[in-house]
Nucleic acid binder design. Structure first.
Lengths: 202, 202
DNA sequence: CGCGAGCCCTGACATCTGTCACGGCGAGGT
DNA sequence: ACCTCGCCGTGACAGATGTCAGGGCTCGCG
């Protein structure tokens, strides 16, 4: 009995290459490929794959949201998240969204098929090096408002612009920013943005 | 007669997948795979491939430097650069380094083999959508010092730290930063960093 | 109810940042 | 030799930023 697969990755070349790689395995069958998170759910409904391989970095609906949607659909499709960046926050958020496995694109090619088989068997597959990091970095320490403000200031917007965009006073924006800077251990907003992005807190 | 290929990509999974994809073609033969830019030159010397597929984003020696080294070796190996990010600056720098072709990982999988064949035939292969962008964005308008300073300030370092690191006065650092901000069209250093990175000027 | 914890919001103050006008230096043209 | 132009370096100044102390609000708990 073959395992039916859905592939989602916005980079056509990578998607096709993964399809070629997985098709070499006798017991795996790629039944659908999509290039955006928004198309995942429809494809799952139509093809009923056993396992969905989702990339996190996709425009529009990202892999995390797509995972949530697939799991919520309740069709028995298990999700294996595949990502370029081994950020601790991604792992945590993917598992919270209901993913059954999480692998980084750094793993040897031969291990991907194994990961698929394990996920299909109901096991959890987690990159071991990431698991440790994820525990120490834990949940985001930022409050909702702090996250909003930091996100708005991400690409260099001034306090005035952020305040305008979020309908706050400038003092409030500065205060949230200050809190975020303190919590991330940086010296200024740019450093705070780097840390928060690296941990998947934005 | 088959075309002999070298694959370089730091992500083992992507590398293996590309190998599987290209091996499906009758006239292509993957003779070597490496996971870092530093290993490229040795592998080229040992296996004498016709075409080398190099990813730009690699730790240590990046794809641009590796291209330069392969071309300088003068063994007749042509370079096809494959990258995740379609930044105009990358294309320009890759071609300046002597690459024969440049494709983004967004292209359909079937086109990669064609690109390889064209490069092997001595043609230039350039993603057409990028070519236009590259011309308008052109060379970096930043002077050497401005680039240094902006690079040092990239992850949120304060003026004092940058000045220390580059052995300059704080006033000078501020001035270079100011010039970079003006040239990039931003309002502050964070915006300048974004723009410069997006154009491959750093 | 009374209380404390946590979050959001604000204004005042010291510090940092970006701008500006200016001088020195080397390369290339006249 | 002279001039010009572009890049590097510098200090003074206004404006933006980060810190701090503090008030109002909701929510859960004794």
């Amino acid at each position: 009995m073959t395992i039916r697969l859905l592939l989602a990755d916005d980079q056509a070349l990578v998607r096709g290459a993964l399809a070629a790689l997985l098709s070499l395995e006798q017991d795996l069958d790629v039944v659908a490929e999509v290039g955006s998170g928004a198309d995942v759910l429809d494809a799952v409904r139509e093809h009923r794959p056993d396992v969905a391989l989702l990339d996190i970095e996709m425009p529009g609906l990202d892999g995390i949201e797509a995972t949530r949607a697939v799991v919520a659909a309740g069709l028995g499709t298990r999700v294996l998240v595949v990502t370029t960046f081994g950020r601790p926050g991604y792992l945590r958020r993917a598992l919270q969204a209901g993913a059954s496995g999480f692998v980084v694109k750094d793993v040897p090619a031969t291990q991907l098929a194994d990961a698929v088989r394990r996920v299909h068997a109901g096991l959890r597959v987690v990159d071991p090096t990431l698991a440790a990091d994820s525990l120490v970095s834990g949940d985001s320490p930022l409050t909702e408002r702090e996250t909003d403000v930091l996100r708005a200031a991400r690409d260099g917007a001034s306090v005035a612009v952020v305040a305008e965009r979020l309908h706050l006073s400038q003092g409030t924006v500065r205060n949230h920013l200050s809190a975020a800077i303190g919590k991330t251990g940086g010296d200024n907003r740019a450093a705070a943005v780097r840390v928060a992005e690296a941990n998947g807190w934005l």
